[in-house]
Nucleic acid binder design. Structure first.
Lengths: 412, 412
DNA sequence: CGCTATTTGTTCAGTGGTTGAATTATTTGA
DNA sequence: TCAAATAATTCAACCACTGAACAAATAGCG
């Protein structure tokens, strides 16, 4: 969100146009039906003349296009509706997870135009090999995008672990990665594009963060504040405040898996005791339900668990209730602290939501002070598997929408 | 931070100047010695011509003034340093708490120019009576400000409870207030000023929030992210992210007192079990230390406790260690989630920090995943009692610094 | 079918605010 | 005393927005 070049805060002459490009584009994106220039003028407070000029720039840069003429609506010259371009820039989303690789392409309007998931157990595979396979998948997606007339403007890679600013994966415990320099490993493979607007062509980010972003644009429109809890082998949370992802001082926010829920409870891999992960992590739930997880890939096991619960298996129900309670305790703490109105159960939790939701809700309404005034919504994620890939791709286009001038100036 | 008038996002011609006023003023405020116009130009990226014009506006509006000529530094025409005006607008900070009332005046530069604390047990007093006494204190502060040539630009009132946007105190349990319309009660008393820039003359806010803001500008300069924990009868937290206060979706963030630390533990007033407040609230600590708190005002009791601990009284030490551990568990959860690098112990915790800090630090370093890479600082608050009043007054001037145009246009 | 009312989108002179270069102001050092 | 150096101001040029007039395209009505 900062501008790398130009002294921060400096407002030159051209900043005005830069800003208004973003404002107008944002209104086009947020509208429920293609707005005319006149409507945009009314909504933004700019004059029609200015809007026309701004729109001309956006049309020239292939960020928006004119919609098909709509059926007559009344007297007067008919308006020409404006929509986000379906053949403009697009974002590439990539994901490495424990048991799959994924790639997808999302266009400016947020539509998923290409999506590939490759199931494979990545734990025994070296980081270099995993990245190489990912590059293949990316090349495939790239070709798909080209066939649809889309230009890839950047890529985001989701990894289940801690990532630093430079894209170095500091620690991804469930993949067994430590200090893996992903961008460097990708350097040998066909590059994406040059830097756009100071952002490198590939951004590496935490899987939970990007999944939360995916939820943001799959869910109801408009800025929202919510907590997206992603239950995989570890538990990650993405925090969306007022429509934008909160990353923390160093970009390592969201480690809800190690929030203490029972300070003297079960020992955790991290060295502490009573972390949420030891009560509501996939391994813990499966073990409590009597499913030894070593034999099955994680997602198969989750499906199996949902089946058992659906058949009213007592052990499964018990395991889910306990996990839900632990999760509810942690979530209640978060909501008390951040005053969020929505909690989304994502990742591995999504298919288990029917059983997890009631205990989570119970803890939250018991423990959240403000729940009496305004209730907290707990709902399953709208996006299915590989939400992080979609969210990552979405974050690329979101960046362009937020600062179209940066993209326009890169155009030949 | 939103603009009530004008369609949101619209950028008119004058916004440029408006913005640059803020940029230049911000640089003057942030500089460590009075910067010249030329320096400002270099740092902002604007031309000297523009800076001169902007500075002229700021001088005319009494927001900045020219510093005394400094001793010669080298060849060339000597520069005239610019400083924030010492006789411009100022903020009035007010605080109602369980055992005191406070008022203070903070000038643009952040200096406390007036400060009064009135000790009194406010619990048996009706809200209307409490507000009346507060109005007296405010009038006194107002006169003090006038004597120093300051103009009050607005006021902020800190209350230990939940406050809504309109200034209605929904619930202040320790004062025994419920649905108290403070601005309406103050209406009979001499008003402050008219609305400035769409903000009402008196803003009511949570005590913990404002105390955190006080810490923000008393602490090291520059944007920071930290958690300010304020241990009074209840426990409140102010969350500062990147130099600005995080208020949550409805403005009710920071209820750390009801974060669960022992889900099946002691019953809490709020109806739940195991809330932090029941382990690290003032009543809990004093009871554990063998001080029956009913007899003493809270702050006297805290002083007494510090004395006992200083004399190595075993019960006191034990009580503080336990409270610190509970606090550490809650704080560890927060830090895991938000990735903050600093935790400030404020309010009633500040004098107890020597004993609370070690157990808090121990829990945090045990339980925070990223503590290994970058340690978390735990320190006592820099500001003493009535920090919230100072923070509130500071928030008023901060608002002016952030949007000077709003103030300038209100000038006669 | 032609006329008017109506709404959209464009054109154009006017204006506010920034730019960049030239100019003036004020000091140090040779 | 004069050149060098740095600070601040002045001024024509320019960019982007404004407001009003104008052109374009349609519906409704006689």
């Amino acid at each position: 969100m900062t501008r790398p070049d130009a002294p921060p805060g400096a407002v030159r002459q051209g900043s005005l146009r830069e800003w208004n490009l973003a404002v107008v584009l944002d209104r086009i994106a947020a509208a429920d039906r293609p707005p005319s220039r006149a409507e945009l003028a009314a909504r933004t407070g700019l004059t029609r003349a200015t809007v026309s000029a701004v729109v001309e720039d956006l049309l020239a840069g292939k960020l928006v296009s004119e919609a098909e003429p709509t059926p007559r609506t009344g007297a007067g010259r008919p308006s020409r509706g404006l929509v986000l371009a379906a053949d403009g820039p697009a974002g590439l989303g990539l994901e490495v997870n424990v048991d799959y690789l994924a790639a997808c392409v999302v266009d400016l309007a947020g539509r998923v135009r290409h999506h590939t998931v490759l199931r494979a157990d990545l734990r025994p595979v070296s980081p270099a090999e995993a990245v190489a396979r990912l590059a293949d998948l990316a090349a495939h997606a790239r070709a798909g995008a080209a066939r649809e007339g889309l230009t890839l403007a950047g890529a985001a890679l989701a990894v289940p672990g801690l990532v630093d600013d430079a894209g170095l994966v500091r620690l991804a415990p469930n993949l067994g990665w430590r200090d893996v320099p992903v961008p460097a490993l990708l350097a040998g493979h066909p590059p994406l594009t040059a830097h756009v607007d100071g952002v490198p062509p590939l951004v590496v980010d935490n899987e939970a963060n990007l999944a939360a972003l995916g939820e943001l644009h799959a869910g109801p429109a408009g800025p929202a504040s919510f907590l997206h809890v992603s239950g995989e082998v570890g538990i990650g949370a993405g925090i969306v405040l007022d429509g934008s992802l909160f990353r923390g001082a160093r970009g390592w926010s969201g480690e809800i898996g190690h929030v203490p829920v029972r300070p003297d409870g079960r020992p955790c891999r991290c060295g502490a005791r009573g972390c949420l992960e030891t009560y509501a992590g996939q391994e813990a739930i499966l073990a409590a339900a009597g499913l030894s997880n070593a034999e099955l890939p994680a997602d198969t096991a989750t499906t199996r668990l949902a089946e058992l619960a659906g058949a009213d298996d007592p052990a499964a129900l018990r395991a889910l209730a306990d996990a839900g309670t632990a999760l509810g305790v942690a979530v209640a703490g978060v909501v008390n602290l951040l005053d969020l109105d929505t909690v989304v159960l994502g990742g591995g939790y999504a298919p288990l939501a029917p059983w997890l939701r009631p205990p989570v809700l119970a803890e939250v309404s018991r423990r959240v002070l403000t729940a009496a005034w305004s209730p907290v919504t707990v709902r399953p994620a709208a996006l299915g598997g590989a939400a992080a890939a979609v969210g990552g791709a979405g974050s690329v286009v979101r960046r362009i929408l937020a600062r179209p001038a940066g993209w326009l100036t890169r155009q030949p």
